[in-house]
């Protein structure tokens, strides 16, 4: 049995089709990544799978239950960590978990042990009796993850679980999730903006754009399919540069991403000189140039024509800098 199987899942708001006949099969176990630019329909897909929204047409099976016919069974078998905070900060951490256990009908005999177990997993055992308003944002997030696990869900939805957290908290959260995958029989559906996270963690990745699934595979084969290597150039006249490279016909694809030009080629080492020559011939000044093997970022760019965080400012260039190998 698949953890999730959607059949022509569609959602329209008025005349606007937000999710367009999506068909995905997610095997049990591991992490399944749902990637896409803002407004691509990721959240709507998740909302439908969580039975918050009713599909306009089509349906899906979550843990074997139809989301339209048996929403209550679906709800009992899933855990959700929302993108926005959703804990009650006037209650203690433990009280939040107790409430969740009551709402999900966790047997009274298991309630205590289950709560202690999840608190331990996210390293909050010693803070369980403190009011949540005294927690840091990283601790709140960890509490939310703990809460989503109280009723031992079969499928866990994590909607941007690490957004807005410092790198250390992020690492913590990923280590809990790895631990979870080892000890529990659980499938995780993840949406994230952090491509390196998705690359490292996900067994499979679906790229969503304009309400459709444009690619679905393991991160490795997606990168392989894209093939070749990427040359990233920052020049003073990007549009002209793109045009000239296209004219030369030496690249597999050329796109502008933010203030950079990304050129995908079969072998960067032989083509790099020509790329530089084109700039020299057209009097385009190159500010920087670097080359890299394909990243999930590039896969994303290839399928959607957009960088995941377009105009994502400092963070993107900061992360890009880490990922990019300097030219040798």
């Amino acid at each position: 049995m698949n953890a999730i199987e959607t059949m022509d899942l569609t959602k329209k708001f008025g005349s606007l089709t937000v999710v367009d006949s999506v068909n995905i099969k997610v095997e049990q176990g591991g992490i399944f990544g749902l990637l896409g630019p803002n407004g691509a329909g990721k959240s709507t897909i998740i909302s439908m799978l969580c039975t918050i929204l009713k599909p306009t047409s089509g349906t899906a099976l979550v843990n074997g239950y139809d989301i339209v016919k048996f929403p209550s069974q679906v709800r009992k078998s899933i855990g959700i960590v929302f993108q926005d905070p959703s804990v009650d900060d006037r209650l203690t951490g433990k009280e939040n978990l107790e409430m969740h256990a009551d709402l999900y009908g966790v047997p009274a005999s298991e309630k205590r042990s289950q709560i202690d177990k999840v608190l331990e997993l996210v390293e909050l055992s010693d803070r369980g009796n403190d009011l949540v308003r005294n927690y840091s944002s990283g601790m709140r997030r960890r509490l939310e993850i703990a809460r989503s696990l109280v009723h031992t869900p079969k499928v866990l939805f994590l909607d941007e679980p690490t957004i807005g957290l410092d790198p250390q908290s992020r690492d913590h959260i990923w280590s809990y999730i790895r631990e979870l995958l080892k000890t529990e029989d659980i499938t995780i559906i993840l949406t994230t903006h952090y491509m390196e996270e998705a690359d490292k963690l996900c067994k499979q990745v679906a790229i969503v754009d304009r309400g459709q699934i444009v690619a679905l595979d393991t991160p490795e084969s997606l990168k392989e399919k894209l093939g070749g290597e990427t040359i990233t150039v920052k020049s003073q006249n990007n549009p002209l540069y793109v045009e000239k490279i296209k004219e030369a016909g030496i690249a597999k694809s050329v796109v502008i991403a933010g203030d950079e030009v990304k050129v995908t080629v079969d072998s960067a080492h032989t083509i790099l000189p020509s790329i530089v020559n084109i700039a020299a011939l057209n009097h385009i000044f190159i500010e920087s140039i670097s080359l890299q093997e394909p990243q999930l970022d590039d896969v994303f760019l290839h399928y959607t024509g957009r960088a995941l965080r377009e105009g994502g400012g400092k963070e993107l260039s900061g992360m890009g800098a880490i990922m990019r190998r300097q030219i040798r």
Binding site: C50, T51, I52, S72, R75, K76, I80, F82, D84, P85, S86, V87, D88, D89, H100, L103, Y104, G105, R147
Partner: peptide
Amino acid sequence: QFGFLKEILVAPI
């Protein structure tokens, strides 16, 4: 406004 309603709304109740 503070998001807690979502937690209740997705519960099987």
